[in-house]
């Protein structure tokens, strides 16, 4: 059944984290992967109309991508991401994503929703992968081979990011800007689907680079490092992706390795709002000297106010640095 079979992959949410894995996996099984393309105003509007009003912005965006794929593919791939590590869960929205997709008013092609749940151990995980691949081939070795190739693609992608490229640079196959040439280094914290989506982040990374700063993100830090930093909290955070944000911010603030931190959060994300006050509180307690600014994005965000804040933040950092230079001389 693989001949000409097309799987739709919404370019939203965990796309930025895992897409090389699944793209390679499907391609190796002879399945064509169709992307929904970068977010734009039309997609966002589509999603906002379709989605429950109380959902967070990234999920509304996801709906837009889903609808954009509706009549272009034979199936849509929406893995049910329950847990990606033994000790933690993802946000509940990810667990229910395939169900939320099925509940749309618009008729969608069949949804492929393997349950990814590392809490059940690796044996179960392998079983899930084989089940997923069995829709296209009976050859188990081929399925596992395809998955293995997928993991390698993912690692290559992660290596490129660690070397300083952002997922956007890689997706657009652009050269990553040379790190260390700018005067200022800004740590950009937040969910990949918020900071790497050029439309909803209002091109934040490009704007920051144009203002003469180096932008670093969580994905450029070794994962074990983030893990270690977030362990210092009195209580274990049970959401994987939020724990990554916390680990990232601590990594930068405790080492003084960036001039400033911008934390992008989406309205009305529950976990984000908790993490925001947690971070502010902890950084104050640790007497961190690295300034952090939170930027809240939602579908009504006006570009003007957004720009003012970014400009003011970069201004603050560069004036501070200039003064420090003057004192040192």
């Amino acid at each position: 059944m693989t001949d000409g079979f097309k799987v739709g992959y919404p370019q939203a949410l965990l796309y930025y984290k895992y897409f090389p894995l699944w793209e390679t996996f499907f391609n190796r099984l002879g399945v064509e992967v169709v992307l929904s393309g970068p977010t734009n105003k039309a997609l966002l509007n589509l999603g906002t109309v379709e989605a429950e009003n109380e959902l967070c912005l990234p999920v509304k965006v996801f709906y837009g991508h889903l609808l954009a794929l509706a009549d272009k593919v034979d199936a849509i791939f929406i893995p049910r991401m329950v847990s990606v590590e033994k000790s933690a869960y993802t946000c509940p929205k990810f667990m229910g994503l395939p169900d939320m997709a099925r509940a749309t008013e618009t008729r969608l092609p069949p949804i492929m929703d393997p349950t990814i749940n590392w809490k059940l151990g690796w044996r179960q995980y392998v079983k899930t992968i084989i089940e997923l691949g069995s829709q296209f081939t009976d050859n188990k070795a081929k399925i596992l081979g395809a998955y293995h190739a997928g993991v390698q693609s993912l690692h290559q992608y992660q290596d490129k990011i660690r070397a300083g490229a952002t997922p956007i640079d890689i997706i657009e196959s652009k050269e990553a800007p040379r790190a260390g040439v700018a005067d200022l280094r800004i740590g950009l914290a937040g969910h990949p689907y918020n900071i790497y989506d050029k439309y909803i982040s209002m091109n934040l990374i490009k704007r920051l680079r144009e203002m003469g700063t180096d932008v670093v993100t969580a994905e450029m830090i070794p994962h074990s490092e983030l893990e270690k930093e977030s362990q210092t909290l009195p209580k274990h955070l049970f959401w994987t992706f939020e724990r990554e944000v916390v680990g990232t911010v601590f990594h930068w603030s405790r080492r003084n390795s960036v001039d400033g931190i911008i934390y992008v959060l989406a309205f009305p994300c529950g976990p984000d709002s908790l993490i925001q006050s947690l971070l502010e509180h902890e950084m104050r307690r640790e007497r961190s000297t690295v300034p952090m600014m939170s930027l809240v994005i939602d579908e009504h965000s006006a570009e003007g106010g957004f720009l003012t804040r970014i400009e003011a933040f970069v201004d603050m950092l560069s004036r501070k640095k200039k003064l420090a230079g003057r004192v040192a001389n």
């Binding site: 300034p291 600014m293 106010g305 003011a312 933040f313 201004d315 603050m316 004036r319 501070k320 003064l323």
Partner: peptide, 8 residues
């Protein structure tokens, strides 16, 4: 005389 933090 230098801004060290702000909120809006």
């Amino acid at each position: 005389g230098i801004v060290v933090d702000f909120a809006m």
